[in-house]
Nucleic acid binder design. Structure first.
Lengths: 338, 338
DNA sequence: GTGAAAGCGCTAACAC
DNA sequence: GTGTTAGCGCTTTCAC
């Protein structure tokens, strides 16, 4: 890589002259500016990012810590973050916590020592279960703002972007009830997560509000065989006529399993699940999907962080919690639109 | 963040003494070392990464450029890269090219100005179609090694990690022939990609080698409705008794669509597709899957890059191309194991 | 055993 | 209009 020093030497001027010329300083003569720029162009000079970071005490890099990159929702959120960050001249360093508190702490620690200006993260499962938040607070107190999305730590004061999980399943359940469904089941493989609990609560509330309805939940834990569990579930409860799935895998499998048992979807049974387009088409018929707008969530999180990074420390900036509303895309796995 | 300067001041010693003490230099007295370390511990001192990078002229960061983070295979490869990189003390900066040549070039350009030590990338679709490679060569000539994986530019001399695409579909097709299948179709939504073409070629070869067999391909382009296309395809070719899918979505939908048409899987029709575990279970029965070992591919790519980064420029290091063999996981969508 | 000084690449206040 | 200097945080050579 060419440096200012080399350009300066070749042009027989000082380093600062070159620097100023390239930064369009008024101080430098037109002729000199031209010569400098031409040579810089020729050598394809680009200022060294590391030197700039050191000098300006900011890296223009955002640390992103997510629990699981294979989760389609999180991958999509990451996509949204990356795009929004890029738009504002930021790069992202991605760390995957693997749902582990220790890894989350380490990543935070490691990146906080100069590599990034701030963080966007989704709290790991272990962190949620143990309810640890000290590492977040410490990072923030060291001057690195954090924006949390989807799974957030309510005890930490920071910007947050979340989904209306409770409302989504409440409304979805209501809509199945409106279809005249009598035995609506809830299937989830994310029971341990805060969002999973909220989604179940929405379902429960809707069921409890309806006369003659009863709760019926299937929880699938990590490592368990979704196929087998859903199969048994359908066998044990042959009269299920509606399913609310807290995740996309369970929803898709539920449809295919119902068909496997010679039940018509949506004639005999309706299925709604949280899912993105690309996954919801894995079943026939495709899954009526609750869309979380993951990309938008990621983008919003990035916006909040960047705004905070670019606000002078002197100004007060209130912490906000942005709720991104889900929308339902009806396909042929349900009778009615919401 | 605490700096050496601040520690030095508080301890009434020089900056260099503190630095040496923390780096366990022999020169410093035991007593001093102890005092320094205690204070550093107290203040949770961590050397500033940016300063280290500038000084040592390396960032311990790898630039990863992938075309699409929502592609499960690529996300998984990224996961492998991240883990392997972390193991060796590297962070990763992720850029998403969105299958665009321009974005790929920009990312390369941007990160090459000091942000990363080298690159791991999967060539974008547009780049493959236009067969552009200059930006890769230029980046390498500037001292940033590149490792390509999955989709590679054959005209560029660099380390590569690829899949035995041709062999995989050749063998998969052969195994369906061995089952006694007579009309085996090939379905692909990645026809434009180098790997897509190789996969089709493997299928063609196997079919052509068998007497009385004919080729039957369905290509699904971006933006087209997979459900609709596969549905029509089955309608138009009611006697299909085998499917080789070049991607996981098509394989899963094919199974579900076959069942939809009252055809038994695998009694009447066998389906094999490239897929990972989490997606192959989206159908009932689950898809017999050609596993690409994405994580391993990512990890291997990271290993190759890190090895190169840590080899002194004086030593010659041959460029290698590593082929990661696929394996087949048989489930109930086929009769025989491969 | 400790400290001063140089230098990584860059910017900017200040001289001339 | 151009150059000198200091400094961002760190390591390391060389003096003392």
């Amino acid at each position: 890589m060419v440096t200012l020093k080399q350009l300066a030497k070749e042009l027989n001027v000082s380093i600062s002259t070159v620097s100023k010329a390239l930064n369009n300083s008024e101080e430098i003569g037109q002729e000199t500016v031209k010569r400098v720029k031409e040579l810089a162009e020729l050598y394809n000079y680009k200022p060294n990012k590391v030197a700039l970071s050191l000098k300006q005490n900011k890296t223009n890099t955002i640390g992103v810590i997510i629990p699981d990159i294979l989760n389609h929702f999180l991958a999509k959120a990451l996509f949204g973050i990356e795009r929004e960050a890029n738009l504002h001249g930021y790069n992202i360093i991605t760390c995957i916590s693997n749902e582990s508190l220790v890894k989350e702490k380490e990543s935070l620690q490691l990146l906080a020592s100069g590599s990034v200006d701030g963080f966007i993260l989704c709290v790991s499962e272990e962190t949620q279960i143990k309810n640890e938040v000290e590492h977040f607070k410490k990072t923030m107190s060291q001057g690195h703002p954090i924006v949390m999305f989807d799974r957030v730590a309510h005890d930490v004061l920071c910007d947050k972007v979340i989904v209306d999980d409770y409302d989504s399943t409440y409304r979805a359940t209501k809509s199945l009830l409106d279809e005249g469904r009598n035995k609506i089941a809830f299937i989830s493989n994310i029971d341990e997560l805060s969002v999973g609990k909220l989604r179940e609560r929405g379902y429960r509330q809707a069921i409890l509000e309806s006369l003659g309805q009863e709760l019926l939940s299937l929880k699938i834990r990590k490592g368990e065989d979704s196929h087998q569990k859903i199969k048994s579930f359908f066998k044990d409860n042959q009269d299920i006529d509606g399913v609310i799935a807290a995740d996309s895998t369970s929803g898709v499998i539920a449809i295919n399993m119902a068909v496997h048992f010679k039940r018509k979807v949506p004639k005999h049974i309706s299925v709604i699940g949280f899912s993105s387009k690309s996954v919801s088409i894995h079943s026939v018929p495709p899954l009526t999907a609750i869309r979380q707008h993951a990309k938008k969530i990621g983008a919003k999180a990035a916006q909040l962080l960047i705004k905070r990074l670019q606000t002078p420390a002197t100004e007060e900036l209130q912490f906000t919690t942005k709720i991104i509303k889900t929308t339902v895309v009806k396909t042929k796995s349900t009778l009615k639109a919401l």
